[in-house]
Design a protein around this nucleic acid. Sequence first.
DNA 1: GTCTATACCGTGATAGAC
DNA 2: GTCTATCACGGTATAGAC
Lengths: 230, 230
Amino acid sequence: MMSKIIETVATQPLVSLSEADRHETALQIMNVAEQLFAESGFNGVPLRLLTKEAGVNLAAVNYHFGSKEGLFEAIFVQRLAPLIEGCLKELEVLETEQQKLTLDSLLQTVIRPCLALAKDPKSGGAIFVRLLSRTLLENHRQVREMIAGQYGEFVQRYLRAFHQALPQLNAEQLAWRMHFAFSVMFNAFAGNDVLKVFTRSEVVSARDPDIIVKHVLPFVTAGLLAPVER
Amino acid sequence: MMSKIIETVATQPLVSLSEADRHETALQIMNVAEQLFAESGFNGVPLRLLTKEAGVNLAAVNYHFGSKEGLFEAIFVQRLAPLIEGCLKELEVLETEQQKLTLDSLLQTVIRPCLALAKDPKSGGAIFVRLLSRTLLENHRQVREMIAGQYGEFVQRYLRAFHQALPQLNAEQLAWRMHFAFSVMFNAFAGNDVLKVFTRSEVVSARDPDIIVKHVLPFVTAGLLAPVER
DNA sequence: GTCTATACCGTGATAGAC
DNA sequence: GTCTATCACGGTATAGAC
């Protein structure tokens, strides 16, 4: 059905079955797992609970995904592909429309697809946005390598775009500031309770993506545009 | 030496034996543990490895600290007390010296003690600064509650100080921005490889605290001072 | 190919002997 | 205080049923 024409040629390092190809059991596992992982973190979810919740056998996870980590990656591959495609599409539009990239419009090409995903009710996207943020912050070796390997083009194109929007920064300064900017954005979306220590818990625990963006954007924009230390 | 005038009054809810009071075995465990935790994270260090490395029996951890989590907290309590004391002392000086707090000088009262600790060669402070940052970002429930409970005064005083330095922000805006600011600072100090995805690994992997601060401060300052969305 | 039951080994915790 | 033995629980591997 799904174009398995020359299945031997392509180097498809990781499992990347489309939703249609996957077995019902595997899908059931992925849906339940995404929810539980986002709630309790990777280590907070025992396979025995997960499989029980999904109504499948304990060994099913290892059979369909190789390992618990494999299941984790599978969730990412499936969700990340359309998200990144969405970002790149917005970026492309931006690059053809405007001669000069503005920083704000550039940041919007990342934030809008995240928002769209986060607000799509039927795709469990909101859960994934939190899971993605949480995972990037938790520094999972596997996922990080997967992104770097699979989406090199994405990374390169955004590096170039940011360089264009912030020409006054040299390579080192740009790297640091992108590091900071994405730290803030992911932390905000992760809905971490981390820094409640320094804040009133009722205020910052808001989960509404629009509110988050309203607060994040000015901060990040100003930080990126800060005068360069010399 | 350090003004222990009325030592009986304070409510000291958690274990907080001074270094001198503690058993040699416990000290040995703590030193080894701090190092290993900072390298591999809490879950990355099995007690069997830890105790073998420290040359003590497996059960010693549970005997002296109650649990693996207890050991984790003990490390924090011991290191955090002087760090927080250092911050508050700097803040006090600042409040008496200047009529108007400047944002930069306020941030310095946090960063300078962290830097001093990070650069003290004989106290393993550098390891702890990374461990602290990593832990706050990883959202350990225990440690967060410990800080909130034990250092309420610290939190309140800094909230007031930031409010004074940024009077144009209302409570909600201030909470969000402090949340962001500390996210960035901790992420920078944590030395996470997280966002290497978006950067050249060689650049951002710098561990020199001075270099980190040089890049962090302008970003955070500008972010905090960003115009308010309306 | 898919699913099930079950066994294996490593983890943190704990009781009790010394 | 320290140690050994043992426990319950975690992810994983596999043999065999369908």
